[in-house]
């Protein structure tokens, strides 16, 4: 008898949890699905035209490309940091972890202003680099803004990935003749690769979606979000929505393929 009562209680909890889950999933699906549905059902022609518009395609290509560059930099510089954070205890580790998380918390308009003041022609980094690279209204400007906001999205999952690899596996590999480097790329890296892919996907997606931090330093060349914003201001929902839907579908496609690779 007791067992059934208990089972019943669990059942009720799961039903409530199920309802809550349904609500939150619906919330996301409705917001993202509505414009897609409206666009594809009521204005398919406008959508097809947008798909052929070279300005739109250029912007989306630029967005995807710059975000990949930012992710590439995050990968090269962030992977070593993620490893150190996963493996070592040292004074100030908490501080570094908090610093890495800051871009999640800082309002992105503020981040944009900060990035601008460091990277514009007379900025702390912009000035000494000015003979070699231009950040203001240029691709490098877009990349640094995207890099800033996406760094925590790369580092955190990768650190978790490295933490999940037992350090003894590295030790055994060393005893079998592997150098530190080989133990890392033959053992630790491949075991953590799912987390690394997750980090790449998250950081890349975060870069694509960035708007506020990008426009202050690099309104031009326009990334997709800037174009959508501009078209919204000029022509309202009807002019901006097709671009938004196209970007959304492309992102969805890439994310789904990422997920299937991770499995």
């Amino acid at each position: 008898m007791k067992k059934t009562t208990r089972g019943g209680k669990h059942g009720k909890m799961l039903v409530l949890f199920g309802i809550a889950s349904f609500l939150i999933v619906s919330f996301v699906v409705i917001i993202l699905g509505e414009p897609v549905f409206t666009q594809l059902v009521f204005d398919l022609e406008g959508f097809i035209e947008t798909c052929k518009d070279p300005e739109v395609l250029n912007c989306i290509g630029l967005t995807i490309g710059t975000s990949f560059m930012a992710t590439g930099i995050a990968f090269l510089v962030g992977t070593p940091l993620a490893y150190i954070l996963a493996r070592k205890k040292f004074f100030g580790k908490r501080v570094i972890e908090s610093i890495i998380d800051l871009p999640i918390m800082v309002p992105h308009m503020i981040a944009g202003i900060a990035i601008f003041s460091v990277f514009y022609r007379y900025g702390l980094i912009g000035k000494p680099l000015s003979p070699i690279v231009k950040f203001f209204d240029a691709i490098p400007g877009i990349v640094v803004a995207m890099l800033f906001v996406s760094v925590p999205f790369f580092i955190n999952p990768v650190r978790e990935g490295f933490q999940s690899v037992d350090p003894r596996l590295e030790k055994v590999a060393r005893s079998l003749g592997a150098t530190e480097w080989k133990a890392f790329y033959k053992i630790t890296f491949p075991i953590a690769y799912k987390h690394i892919l997750a980090g790449i996907g998250m950081s890349w997606g975060r870069g694509i979606s960035e708007f506020a931090a990008v426009i202050i330093l690099a309104y031009y060349p326009m990334v997709a979000s800037t174009l959508i914003y501009e078209r919204f201001l000029i022509g309202g929902l009807e002019y901006s929505r097709p671009v938004a839907v196209l970007l959304m579908l492309i992102c969805l496609g890439i994310f789904i393929s990422f997920r299937s690779v991770r499995k």
């Binding site: 003894r168 596996l169 030790k171 055994v172 590999a173 592997a178 150098t179 075991i191």
Partner: peptide, 28 residues
């Protein structure tokens, strides 16, 4: 360094490389 000592090490949980099959583990 450990790689220059030519020593075999076996841990309590054996620490087999989970991303490699048995033969690949042995060949490592």
């Amino acid at each position: 360094p450990p790689e220059d000592r030519n020593i075999g090490f076996i841990y309590q949980d054996y620490s087999l490389f989970p991303h490699l099959d048995v033969k690949e583990n042995v060949e490592f």
